[in-house]
């Protein structure tokens, strides 16, 4: 095999790899992208059946656990609007009322958000940027600022 032909073969293989990768990535992206929304974004409705991420604060006093020990309902708020969420499974250790949370799932026909995953932040001092952003956009930066001060003050 001459050098030229080998190089062509290699180039062909590399292009094939690139093509496969692009095809795989594009199809997978099309099916599996999940967009992030805050409760205010969802007021207009029209998201039924679409897999989305919902972020905000867990509304204080809204968490209720079902009798089976695995179903929880709570509200997610960005201080302007709230969305009711139900989740079957285990909530993360850091899931707490008044704290930031991101829930992934779909809206049911009854308008309740059915979460399949609930992510809470890993660290007390940390607010998921999406949630922080959502709160700011809802026009309540005070809430965020107050939160941050509280955290700072809690430190020695």
């Amino acid at each position: 095999m001459t050098r030229k032909r080998r190089r062509l073969t290699l180039l062909g293989l590399a292009l094939l790899g690139l093509f496969t990768a692009t095809a795989l990535v594009l199809t997978a992206l099309e099916d599996n992208l999940v967009f992030f929304f805050s409760p205010s974004d969802l007021v207009a409705g029209g998201f039924e059946g679409q897999r989305i991420r919902l972020g905000g604060l867990v509304e204080p006093g809204s968490v209720q656990r079902g009798g089976d020990g695995v179903t929880a309902t709570f509200s997610v708020t960005d201080t302007a609007h709230t969305v009711a969420v139900t989740f079957t499974g285990l909530l993360p250790d850091l899931f707490r009322e008044g704290q930031g949370v991101v829930a992934e799932g779909r809206f049911g026909p009854d308008g309740v958000f059915r979460a399949t995953d609930v992510l809470a932040k890993h660290d007390e001092n940390y607010m998921p940027p999406e949630v922080d952003d959502a709160l700011r956009r809802a026009g309540h930066p005070d809430q965020v600022a107050a939160d941050e001060t509280a955290v700072l003050e809690a430190r020695p």
Binding site: L33, F35, F36, R53
Partner: peptide, 18 residues
């Protein structure tokens, strides 16, 4: 251009076939 997340389904669909 919006906040999205790319989750396990994407990676399973691209990584495993390779």
């Amino acid at each position: 251009a919006g906040k999205v997340s790319v989750g396990p389904p994407f990676f399973n669909a691209t990584f495993i076939p390779l």
